[in-house]
């Protein structure tokens, strides 16, 4: 489906402010261009949107449901609200649920200071969780000579899966299991170190928002610096052919 669709210039309002957009853009694209902040976690520039974290939910007039800004295309006359008491409460709840789900111990994490979950908690003012932590037990896969996968720190945003399959074309990583038991595995749940498909490209390390996938070597607490912007660059170079 690469036929040229006619792209129109439309107007919509975001938080009451009229903005112009082209009809193939998403609400998130347009909001960003116009300086509106919509929190996101599973979204990453250059990857196909996934709509799973639900942080970017916005109110759209005329819709009886909240819509994910990362997956909702703009339309003529659309009235979008990116911030309200209700949205703020929902976003805080979603962060709390994520923090209770796995074992996120910022103080001993390689991604301390470079973690999007941590900085999102700060940005949204989430200073404690009201529900009990679940403290599940996940094993760490350190069999690969360069990378480590630690599901204890995973938020299942699937960025690693998407980058591995859609950008690198290897599809080594995927999600196994369902519900609260879902976890990232390599190949058919084999040791990552034995993977015949992994190209050792390290894109998964770069896109991981937390410390769940990290590089081995001289990396201690708070030393996991990332280049998440690289993926958007690669996608752009390829002219968005993954879409």
């Amino acid at each position: 489906m690469s036929s040229v669709q006619s792209v129109q210039i439309i107007t919509l309002t975001i938080d009451g402010k009229p903005v112009g957009a082209s009809s193939d853009e998403t609400v998130l694209d347009v909001a960003k261009q116009n300086g509106f902040f919509i929190p996101t976690l599973c979204f990453l520039e250059g990857l196909i949107p996934y709509g799973a974290c639900r942080l970017c939910l916005v109110e759209v007039k005329g819709s009886n449901r909240l819509l994910p800004a990362c997956m909702t295309k703009v339309a003529e006359g659309m009235e979008v609200t990116t911030d309200s008491e209700k949205l703020r409460s929902y976003r805080r709840w979603i962060l709390e649920l994520l923090f209770t789900e796995r074992n996120h111990v910022c103080s001993v994490c390689v991604a301390n200071g470079f973690c999007e979950l941590q900085s999102m908690a700060e940005a949204l003012g989430m200073d404690h969780v009201r529900l009990p932590y679940l403290h599940p037990q996940f094993s760490v896969d350190a069999t690969h000579d360069r990378f480590v996968s630690d599901n204890n720190r995973c938020i299942l945003c699937s960025r690693c899966v998407r980058v591995c399959s859609d950008i690198e074309g290897a599809h080594t990583l995927d999600i196994m299991g369902r519900g609260i038991h879902a976890r990232i595995v390599s190949d058919l749940d084999d040791a990552w170190g034995n993977s015949p498909t992994c190209t050792r490209c390290s894109k998964c390390v770069q896109v991981c928002p937390t410390g769940a996938i990290k590089e081995k070597g001289r990396r201690s607490v708070g030393e996991k610096f990332k280049r998440r912007d690289l993926i958007a660059y690669i996608a752009k170079l390829r002219g968005g052919e993954h879409e």
């Binding site: 103080s107 404690h128 932590y133 403290h135 037990q137």
Partner: peptide
């Protein structure tokens, strides 16, 4: 006032909860 991550989240001491 809960001062620090241990008081606020359980932090490092709570890592034993898994085991």
């Amino acid at each position: 006032i809960a001062l620090g991550d241990c008081a606020v989240t359980g932090n490092v001491p709570a890592m034993r909860n898994t085991f």
